[in-house]
Structure formats: structure tokens, C-alpha cells
């Protein structure tokens, strides 16, 4: 049997190296889903905060909540516009925000929780913004430059949200008997939605594998440490761990989200394509 001819190797190669592993690209569907998670968290919390407009306990607080809402809706616009572009079906951020049904939303449960009293609102904000700050710090290094630049832009604003909410947690927790009781109750209610923030499912894992998303589990310890510091500063004890509630990333939501969407989507759905 004739032997195979020798292989001509390019100059300078030994023929013994491994191939460079090709960098994986996430599928279009998975990237779309990942972007919806990012955009929907911001959109829904922004909508929740905007409910305070004209109703906050003081004019300064009214302004700060409205401005946080604007920051969040700004983030949502960027992430959802990008999601629409990735999806490639001609939907933009507005179409995704106003013409999707509740089962298609990918936000976490924490952000859709009702405002409750002011302490509950601040407990929610603090738990979320502390998480979002760490998330965006890391997302700013995403291999997808479009995601990286949105995160780098937004993280500066989120740092403010985190500081502002932490100040209120301390002020109310370390305030009067009533403010303390309300903050304890607010934290107790919101605490059960924290584990979902750190859930890693197939889509999140795929985004990490491709260098596009963030391994949230990796900053859980750091997050817990930050929480403990502020809770101690407020003179409170961390709430007892509760049965975690999961499912928002797969479209399973509390009843509250449907009510929120009914208000948010009413106008554009009733008068499609209206301009003013």
C-alpha cells in the first residue's frame, strides 16, 4: 500500500499544536432573550418608580424617584432597541415595551413588586441597584461592544441609585420606631426575591460562555457583604432567609406585572402609532 505523501507545513510550525478554540457565538434567540432580561428589569422598575411622580413624601424625593425612573427607562430603551435589532423582525424598543404580553417579559420578580410604602420602595431599590451596579461593572467588559458601551454608560447612574437607596435604608432603619418597623417589613418582603437575581440558567450560562454575559453567581459573596454593611449601619438584622421565588426569566410572573403592563401599555395599544 502506498504511503501518504508528507505534509508541507508552513514555515515556523511544528505540526503539533492544538487549534485555537473558536470563540463561540450565542444563538440569536439566546442573545435576544438575554437582552430582554437586561432591558425588562430596567423598564419595569422605571415604570414602578414613575408611579410616584407627584406622590412622593417630599419634593426632593419626588425629583429623585422621577430621575431614577428616567435613568432606568433610558437603559431599557438602549437594551430593548438592541434586542429588537438582534431579533431582526423589525421591532424596536417601543414595540417590545408596549406590544408584548406578560408571558413574554423576562424581568425578575423583585422589580415588579408594588411600591408599598416608601420604606418598601427603598428596600426594593437598594437590593436591586446594589445588584445592578455589580452586574454593569462586569457587563462593561462584555465581548459584545454594544452591550459593553450601554453598561459602561449606565453604571455611573446606577452608582447613584445604589448610594441614594442605601442612605434611605440607613436613615429609616436607624430613625424612629415607626420608620424602623416599616424598613424591617419592607426588607422582609423584598428579601425573598434576591435569590432570583443570582440564578444561572441555560441562557445566562450560554451568555457567560460566549464572553457576552456576566456570571452573577461569582459576585454573590461580594453582594452579601455589601448588604450586611448597610444593614449593620441601619442597626438592623438581616431578614431570615425565605423560600426563594424564581421564574421571571422564563416568563412566570406575579399577578402584579399584568396590572403594571395594563397601565403602561394601555395608550399605545388603544391608539397604535399615535404621535404627540
Amino acid at each position: 500500500m502506498a504511503s501518504l505523501p508528507p505534509i508541507d507545513l508552513p514555515a515556523g510550525t511544528s505540526g503539533e499544536g492544538a487549534f485555537d478554540a473558536p470563540v463561540a457565538e450565542p444563538s440569536r434567540e439566546k442573545l435576544f432573550d438575554y437582552l430582554l432580561r437586561l432591558g425588562d428589569d430596567s423598564l419595569i422598575l422605571g415604570q414602578r418608580l414613575s408611579e410616584y411622580c407627584g406622590h412622593a413624601p417630599s419634593v426632593e424625593v419626588d425629583l429623585s424617584l422621577a430621575n431614577m425612573a428616567l435613568d432606568l427607562i433610558g437603559q431599557a430603551t438602549l437594551f430593548l432597541d438592541l434586542a429588537g435589532e438582534v431579533e431582526g423582525k423589525g421591532r424596536d424598543g417601543d414595540a417590545l415595551a408596549f406590544h408584548r404580553d406578560v408571558l413574554d417579559f423576562r424581568n425578575c420578580w423583585l422589580v415588579e413588586q408594588p411600591n408599598g410604602d416608601f420604606a418598601q420602595t427603598m428596600a426594593r431599590q437598594w437590593l436591586f441597584s446594589t445588584w445592578q451596579k455589580s452586574l454593569f461593572d462586569r457587563l462593561a467588559n462584555s465581548r459584545d461592544p454594544r452591550i459593553a458601551e450601554i453598561a459602561a454608560k449606565a453604571v455611573k447612574e446606577v452608582a447613584y441609585h445604589q448610594d441614594l437607596a442605601a442612605e434611605w435604608v440607613i436613615r429609616l432603619g436607624d430613625g424612629t420606631e415607626e420608620s424602623r418597623r416599616r424598613m424591617v417589613d419592607g426588607l422582609d418582603w423584598m428579601w425573598r426575591f434576591v435569590p432570583e437575581l443570582f440564578e444561572m440558567d441555560g441562557i445566562a450560562a450560554e451568555a457567560v460562555r460566549c464572553g457576552i454575559g456576566v456570571d452573577v453567581a461569582a459576585f454573590r459573596d461580594d453582594y452579601d457583604r455589601r448588604l450586611r454593611e448597610v444593614i449593620a449601619g441601619a442597626g438592623l438584622e438581616p431578614p431570615a432567609d425565605q423560600r426563594p421565588i424564581l421564574g421571571g426569566r422564563r416568563g412566570h410572573h406575579s399577578e402584579h406585572l399584568g396590572h403594571l403592563l395594563a397601565i403602561m401599555q394601555f395608550l399605545p395599544r388603544t391608539y397604535p402609532d399615535s404621535k404627540w
Binding site: E60, V61, L63, S64, N67, M68, L70, D71, E157, Y160, D163, L164
Partner: peptide, 8 residues
Amino acid sequence: ISRFGSTP
């Protein structure tokens, strides 16, 4: 007085 003023 407040970290957030009349505009963002």
C-alpha cells in the same frame, strides 16, 4: 439637600 435636583 438632595442628590437629585430638577433634572437628572
